[in-house]
Design a protein around this nucleic acid. Structure first.
Lengths: 122, 122
DNA sequence: TCAACACTCAATCTTTTGCTTGACTAACGG
DNA sequence: CCGTTAGTCAAGCAAAAGATTGAGTGTTGA
């Protein structure tokens, strides 16, 4: 297995830096060399390489060197996992709000006390 | 406007910490007090409060104090913005791959040189 | 052949994080 | 009232992060 299931932790952490997000944005438009990634970044090349390492460790980016240029490309799977995590949270609270709505729609008299709205309010 | 457009930067940064993600997970299931949030977190209450501050600064969480208990609840909008950012990246590279597919499907002779696949490979 | 290019590596430095401790305040609850 | 609960605040501290510098390597193109 080449996909060694990198912790979501690293993915979000990697996305937490603005320079790295700019790099990801660029790479979503197509592969790029390290220098290309560095161009918009007011930072030394060495700095960019360090960000690149974080991105690779997070599984968001993959790169390979041919000759003297390293070509980087995005790894969609990692991005998708992060998106899914957020989506899961959304589904959770949406379902909660639905249940809350149902309870409020119910007639006041006829409520099973073992199924109160106690920890649903919000 | 109460929604003062918090930078995506803070949102991703906030999600980059595992303890904070656990807090967000808990809050997506419904509102909670600070102590409740602290329960699964092997950390002092003071530590949790600091994480909470980061979450509030990111717009992911809102809280209000009644009596001596502070009740925290999730702010879905911030989460959605992060999800959308990722979604936008996905759309960008999906479209790119589509264009690439079209080009590969095209007959070799009949290609407009001003519209080459040069920076589409990947 | 050789200068320019595209990195690469290691050391260093500063700032930001994540966390603790300890002292403090303000509700409850009996 | 007074002890417990629930949080708040300010230092302080070790570790991680973001960046720089400077020196070095392998490639490429003229």
């Amino acid at each position: 297995m080449l996909k060694q299931e990198i912790p979501l932790d690293r993915v979000f952490h990697a996305l937490g830096d603005p320079s790295r997000r700019i790099m990801v944005e660029r790479l979503s438009r197509g592969p790029a060399s390290v220098s290309e990634l560095a161009r918009p970044l007011d930072m030394t090349l060495a700095g960019v390489v360090q960000h690149l390492q974080v991105l690779e460790a997070s599984g968001l980016v993959r790169s390979e060197k041919v000759g003297r240029v390293r070509t980087c490309r995005i790894e969609p799977a990692a991005l998708t996992r992060a998106e899914e995590w957020i989506g899961d949270r959304r589904t959770t609270w949406e379902r909660r709000l639905d249940r809350l709505g149902d309870l409020l729609a119910e007639p006041q008299d006829n409520v099973d006390p073992s199924n109160r709205a106690t920890d649903l309010q919000g």
